[in-house]
């Protein structure tokens, strides 16, 4: 794919699961009360005292093959700038097919609008000269990286080139644009 390909990378080594990214997103994006576009996931493996724990901040993966878009009957869900996955609430009927189609539980109905809301990769910032997403900006451990996969010199490209990483549920075949560093 040509042009800009936005992607997000979260470093699970440094993420402490503090949820500043959650609050930072909610206030930046006016997310409805008791809903969140991003969230903290932890998984503890092993038995006491031989334990390991993964901590990471999750959100919409802005999948390259986004089932949420293909099932959308109204075209409200679409590929936006830099290959991000966006929703035009004015077109959304609230049929919720996309919620059912998303393997990651990234979408929800904004009760104030009756239409889909989800992570936008902060295109209102990154497309208008602010290089960071809000969750990235606030993160006290600076565990969130954002940039252009098509630019080999971007921080995300360099990190993915040199560090072990994974995406969530690759078996879902959605080609996430959201990566996690081991």
């Amino acid at each position: 794919m040509s042009g800009v390909r936005y992607a997000m990378v979260v470093d699970t080594r440094t993420c402490v699961g503090c949820a500043a990214c959650v609050i930072g997103c909610k206030t930046e994006n006016g997310v409805a009360d008791s809903y969140a576009r991003d969230w903290v996931y932890t998984e503890t493996a092993g038995t006491f005292p031989n334990l390991s724990m993964t901590v990471r901040s999750e959100r919409c993966n802005h999948c390259e093959d986004a089932p949420c878009i293909s099932v959308c009957p109204t075209g409200a869900s679409y590929y936006g700038p830099g290959g991000t996955v966006q929703v035009n609430q004015a077109k959304c009927s609230g049929c919720k097919a996309c919620i059912a189609a998303c393997p990651y539980g990234a979408r929800f109905i904004d009760p104030n609008v009756g239409a889909i809301d989800k992570c936008t990769f902060c295109v209102h910032r990154v497309e208008n000269g602010t290089p960071t997403t809000s969750c990235q900006e606030i993160c006290p451990t600076q565990s969130i990286y954002f940039g252009d996969l098509n630019d080999p010199d971007s921080e995300v490209s360099r990190l993915l080139a040199k560090r072990e990483h994974y995406v969530l549920m690759p078996e879902a075949g959605t080609k996430p644009r959201h990566f996690y560093l081991k």
Partner: peptide, 25 residues
């Protein structure tokens, strides 16, 4: 069941080949 019933007409402004629901409509 629609959360935004008044946008239902949107079903009939497009036919989205990839969307069974669109076909259904």
């Amino acid at each position: 069941d629609l959360e935004h019933p008044f946008n239902a007409y949107r079903f009939y402004l497009v036919l989205r080949a990839s969307s069974p629901m669109s076909w259904g409509a």
